[in-house]
Amino acid sequence: MYGWIWRHLPGNAWVRALISLALVVAVVYVLFNYVFPWAEPLLPFNDVTVDNQ
């Protein structure tokens, strides 16, 4: 999978490394800003009330 991505990136090794880094940062950003905030309320830490709101 990662090998396939690596082979399909343009440029020489340095450019590919840079693009990979950018991709990793983008994925982490999306996870922290969209995926995790969505998933976190599914965990029990938000249940602090007694009327289940």
């Binding site: 999978m1 990662y2 982490v28 996870l31 922290f32 995790f36 998933a39 976190e40 965990l43 830490f45």
Partner: peptide, 18 residues
Amino acid sequence: SELCITVGTVIVLFVVYV
């Protein structure tokens, strides 16, 4: 195996997030 490592990494990141 790459997928497993990826899932593991995401879980660790999620713990860091929480």
